[in-house]
Computed example of a mutant assay.
Amino acid sequence: MKASLFPRGSKMERSAILSAAFLVGVIVTTPFSRAADLKGSFDDNFSKSCPAKNFKTSEDGQIWHLSLDEDAGCGFMTKEKYRFGWFSMKLKLVGGDSAGVVTAYYMCSENAAGPERDEVDIEFLGNRTGQPYVIQTNVYKNGTGGREMRHSLWFDPTEDFHTYSILWNNHQLVWFVDAVAVRVYKNANYSNNFFPNEKAMYLFSSIWNADDWATRGGLEKTDWKKAPFVSSYKEFKAEGCKWEDPYPACVATTTEHWWDQYAAWHLNDDQKLDYAWVQRNLVIYDYCKDTQRYPELPQECWLSPWA
């Protein structure tokens, strides 16, 4: 969160201010300001996959509405693929009773359904009316995942647009919500080699039915009488290494590769404070603490996010 909102002081003082921000839903800007909007129309930058009735835009074409009904969902992907960078999108999620509905915003390599795929996920898990939204993040390497974390949010993501971002370089993956780092996944040359740093990825988003698992483990089913379910998107930003076959030199979207410089290899001091608050207050599930599922915790679980 903005440093000016949180003057340095006692831990109790900061905790009180952050708790107030949690209650009122402070909207803040992204922690890096150099990423620029992609040029051109939606169709210039993305390919979509859904019936025409499931994809609508605002009159000026700047807001995109993806819908799910009993017949079909909807999704889109970037025409460019990237290896490392900063990727950001503003989303407004399905309101009301959205149990069973998942809105996903993620990066994935070309072999999206195969055993070789790498993937970095943000998934918004629908809810019954009045229950809190849950954001799930995950990492896949060579088709294997199982690195889920789930967080609650400090605002209602259905009332307005909020910014969801991923910073990806060879040192860390960081997921941001409105400039707040909610998850850090470090690369420390694990012997298990579980860090996605070799394959270029496309950016995807989709809305789909996942009522077999998404809400209370599948106990809450999608109520199709409430359809269509609509998620809205705008202001996609991408700044990174564009991939050019074969294995390329880095072709950045600006002259500065700021997202892969030393300052982007670690959280800064303010980000660390916000991240620590998130860990204390918003984490619902962390695979690194699930000893029933992982009697021997994966190697990356022993690495501090401050490393």
Rank of each mutant, 00 (worst) to 15 (best):
Y82Q: 07
Y82R: 04
Y82A: 08
Y82T: 07
Y82K: 03
F84M: 07
F84P: 01
G85R: 02
G85E: 01
W86A: 05
W86K: 04
W86H: 09
W86S: 05
F87T: 01
F87W: 06
F87A: 04
F87R: 03
F87H: 03
S88L: 09
S88K: 04
S88F: 05
S88D: 12
S88I: 08
M89Q: 15
M89G: 10
M89S: 13
K90N: 13
K90E: 15
K90I: 09
L91V: 13
L91M: 15
L91Y: 05
L91P: 07
L91I: 14
L93R: 01
L93Y: 02
L93E: 04
V94K: 03
G95W: 08
D97N: 14
D97P: 03
D97C: 09
S98N: 10
A99S: 14
G100T: 08
V101T: 02
V102N: 00
V102K: 00
T103E: 08
T103S: 13
T103V: 13
T103D: 08
Y105D: 09
Y105C: 12
Y106V: 03
M107P: 00
M107Q: 08
M107W: 05
M107S: 06
C108T: 13
C108Q: 13
S109C: 10
S109Q: 06
S109W: 01
S109V: 06
S109E: 05
E110L: 11
N111M: 12
A112W: 15
A113G: 15
A113N: 15
G114Q: 06
G114F: 04
E116G: 13
E116A: 15
R117Q: 11
R117P: 01
D118I: 01
E119V: 06
E119I: 07
V120A: 05
V120M: 09
V120H: 00
D121S: 07
D121K: 01
I122T: 11
I122A: 11
I122Q: 10
I122K: 03
I122D: 07
E123I: 09
E123F: 07
E123Y: 08
F124E: 06
F124I: 09
L125R: 04
L125M: 11
L125Y: 03
L125A: 07
N127L: 11
N127A: 15
N127R: 15
R128A: 12
R128Q: 15
R128M: 14
T129C: 13
T129W: 14
G130K: 07
Q131M: 15
Q131S: 14
